[in-house]
Design a protein around this nucleic acid. Structure first.
Lengths: 341, 341
DNA sequence: CGTTTTTCCGTAAACGTTTACGAGAACACA
DNA sequence: TGTGTTCTCGTAAACGTTTACGGAAAAACG
């Protein structure tokens, strides 16, 4: 049933070596025989056994993307990543690589699963998302010398790996600028806990922009909570209880914004009327919420493509003529003005 | 660096055969030597090369879950599946199996990717979701005799594969019952197009319940659209233009409900006040939306665990003493009453 | 003590590829 | 014609495992 290279060879009365060379497009095979091999391969529905290839070549031809729910986050997930994955997979496929998403159990922050992938050599490289400020995954991978790239920056591992990130700092500043221009002075910031790197960047941008406008940074207007609806719901009332009530809130996460708006609604506060709401990472949620939420949108699919390219460029086997290169890029977020501010 | 079974053997001065047997827990190896092997394995940080194992055993020890955005659905994804995947991965890990999620490019409905997985033998079995009424993936897999299980039922492929589904028919009926009990007679149904199987089940339940209550089924109150926010947004006004305006809408999809509520808001119609809204599959969205949406909730994580178990039970290599069994189950959806109806 | 059974381990083949090496044939060139 | 080059292909080893087979040593048994 599963036809092997031997079947092809027997069928054509040539050696398996020639068949392999023909299939792999090597130069030292007659054009005529190559065609015959290709035809036979199609006819016998042949496709190479990956285990065999991997074993011989020491490469799996697949890239692992580590996807993991945050600890305790049983209910919701990562819609954010889907368009990103589409771009990723598209670009990888062009280079003959498979993308496999490996799920971690919630809570262990991927370390165990990551080790498993690396040690059993299930992938040729790994893609990490939601990098933390100090990231043990990055430490581990650099230590064992396993190729990887990250979506997001980190302090860990030096800069010896490709990374693509969004400019959360600028977005945080732009959000403040826009709100200040609209007359706001009391601006709250709500961000995820866990030491996610983008959350720090966002806060930096927020703080710097306030200072630029001569506005004092009030700790009572800054809060962090769990990175989902429940977290936003829980933490938003806290900033609303500040002595001098905020007239605007910037949420660093769409899910938290959703929960926060729920909390606001229960307090009788209407986004867009009684308070201005801005969200840093846009998803379709923001668009279809009532009122539609002003948000900063990342070009997710192009980001996926680009990160794939950057990863490939760093791998000796795929790098272009110039040899392997480590590329770092930071992309801007585009403001989508809607009704909530 | 990557230590092989040969390194272990050399280090212990025994043959690789013995090492392998010790590692795999076979009976014909001395308890003492086994311990020495295990210790050495830990010390040398050995873990078996998957390609080697797979090649020899003809099994990859991994299960593929096919995840694919619907054609044209660039923006949003499958948050629905995350808890499901957690359950799945947890149960598979207990049997030493890896779960890899394989992404398809949007649009080709997975056929090409599926073939690729099957033909290159990257997984031992496949898990399909969002089954269609007539499903070419199922036809293909049964035809080539590749093991699989499905989340959702289908007309294709006979019944020779395990399947776990939710009782959308009952949920559709229950939703109608509840609305009728609250005085509604004009009840609209909005569901995804594409011939997704659950969408038909839902509609069947809806229709039967209406008839049970002596209410005529009005085609003007039934609409289908694309399975995302945009689809709901686009199609909801259509049912609202029916001669005798509906006083309630049942959405068969949470994303469509979100889009639909946006459309309603633009028409000045408030869910929970001017119209009753019920959603068949609950997500955190429904809970945090304003107003919170009444919805039917599936136990996603247990479903994942259970489907993994059912798949394993159907595989000769993992089936229990009774031999392989094909199990079919249909689980109920639990109504979560909130504020929208 | 001799025979049979059990325990334990080494040998080697096999899984399906890729690829270094070498060799025969055809060709080019003087 | 002789020599060197090019084209094409077969041979066989190698990747890291698992496992059937057989055999030596130890244990059990009479």
């Amino acid at each position: 049933m599963a036809s092997s290279i031997h079947d092809l060879a027997r069928h054509l009365n040539i050696s398996i070596g020639t068949v392999s060379r023909a299939l792999n497009g090597r130069a030292d095979v007659n054009a005529d025989t190559r065609q015959r091999v290709l035809d036979a391969a199609k006819k016998l529905n042949y496709s190479p056994n990956q285990s065999g290839r991997s074993l011989r070549q020491g490469a799996t031809h697949s890239i692992a993307f580590m996807l993991q729910p945050h600890p305790g986050d049983q209910q919701y997930g990562e819609p954010f990543f889907i368009p990103f994955l589409i771009g990723l997979q598209g670009r990888l496929a062009e280079s003959g690589l498979d993308l496999t998403v490996v799920m971690g159990a919630p809570g262990d922050y991927q370390q165990e699963r990551l080790r498993r992938v690396v040690e059993t050599r299930r992938a040729d490289a790994v893609l990490l998302a939601w990098t933390r400020r100090e990231d043990e995954r990055i430490d581990y991978l650099t230590q064992v010398g396993f190729p990887f790239a990250t979506l997001g920056r980190s302090r860990s591992g030096g800069k010896a790996y490709p990374s693509l990130d969004l400019d959360f700092e600028k977005a945080g500043g732009d959000a403040v600028d826009r709100l200040v221009a609209r007359g706001h002075r009391r601006i709250a910031a709500i961000r995820p806990s866990l030491n996610l790197n983008f959350s720090y960047l966002f806060l930096d941008g927020y703080r710097k922009a306030l200072k630029r406008h001569g506005i004092e940074v009030d700790p009572a207007l800054i809060a962090d909570g769990f990175i989902n609806e429940a977290g936003g719901y829980q933490v938003t009332p806290r900033v609303m209880q500040a002595k001098d009530r905020p007239t605007a809130i910037i949420f660093n996460n769409d899910a938290m914004a959703l929960g926060g708006c729920k909390a606001l609604a229960e307090m009788g506060i209407r986004p867009g009327h009684d308070i201005a709401v801005t969200v840093i990472v846009d998803t379709p949620l923001c668009r279809y919420f009532s009122p539609a939420l002003t948000a900063f949108r990342p070009p997710l699919e192009p980001m996926g493509r680009r990160l794939a390219e950057m990863l490939l460029a760093s791998l000796p086997a795929f790098a272009g003529p110039g040899g392997p290169r480590i590329i770092h890029e930071v992309w801007p977020l585009e403001l989508i003005a809607r009704d909530s501010d």
